[in-house]
Amino acid sequence: MNTITNFEIYAPKLVEKREFFSAGHRACQGCAEALALRLILKALGEDIIVANATGCMEIISSAYPHTAWEVPYIHVAFENAAAVASGVEAGLKALRRKGRIPDRYVKVVAVAGDGGTADIGLQALSGAMERGHDMIFFCLDNEAYMNTGIQRSSATPFMAATTTSPAGKAIKGQRTGKKNVAEIMVAHGIPYVATASPSYPLDLMQKVKKARAIQGPSYIHVLSVCPTGWRAASHEAVKLGRLAVETGFFPLYEVENGKYRLTVELPAKRRPIGDYLKLQGRFRHLDPADVEKVQALVDKEFRKLMHKVETSVPWS
């Protein structure tokens, strides 16, 4: 585990003091999506425009006439954050070229949940990335449709119980593994793809800054613990995020021009997945044999990733 010594001395230099996602919003206690947003916006700084999909972050931040957003913000619908952001980017480009807005670079950012990214939003996301719009797309992945009551998404992990993949007598929770959207984004040939977690704030913010500096499309997939939906203790949200990484369930890596790199190294002997699962009520129904199955899946996915880390070379 990376620990930072003398944090109090360095932190003010490393982290923007101003808040762009202000306090007073309506997120649950321990919500790591809200924490991720706060850190992401600190790393992005001024001169950005956010296009947000319907979902928890939209609902907790923008009940008219209130807003938590200190930066320009637009919400249109659930599945179209990438398309709205495409339009914003195109509009800015044209207006700047024609001298109708100040001649200054403004970064366009799309923010969606795992549903707004991996499921209903995948088409718009693919289109935006393929067209090469200059934007960062953030997936705040809490592994289900939380806003509407913890229904499963294609990013819900294997065997997790949700309200539409309940732990039943015949079927024990989610039947499939997590869709790997980061991989799909790499296949789009975009210059920068990363996974991140607010439990690793400096790693997260560094990746955001890297993506911000790129003129073109980039994608950051942020695993965001949702204590409410995961049936976990809210004071353990940050710890759960770290366990997700330490068990190899959610490795932190980046893909720059096709070259994979782990940004948080893991020891050869990773922590067992059981350490992560046992803190979450959504996995309560798993027996030891089930935990073995999950472990096998985690190991397989991790091996696949490490193969890419070891063998990939940059496209250019």
Binding site: I74, A83, A94, A124
Partner: peptide, 22 residues
């Protein structure tokens, strides 16, 4: 700018975003 959208859902969404910039 000519946005070669991947669907009409995205064309109208992109129009909304662009119109919001002025």
């Amino acid at each position: 700018e000519f946005i070669t959208v991947e669907s009409e859902h995205s064309s109208i969404s992109a129009c909304a975003g662009a119109s919001a910039t002025g």
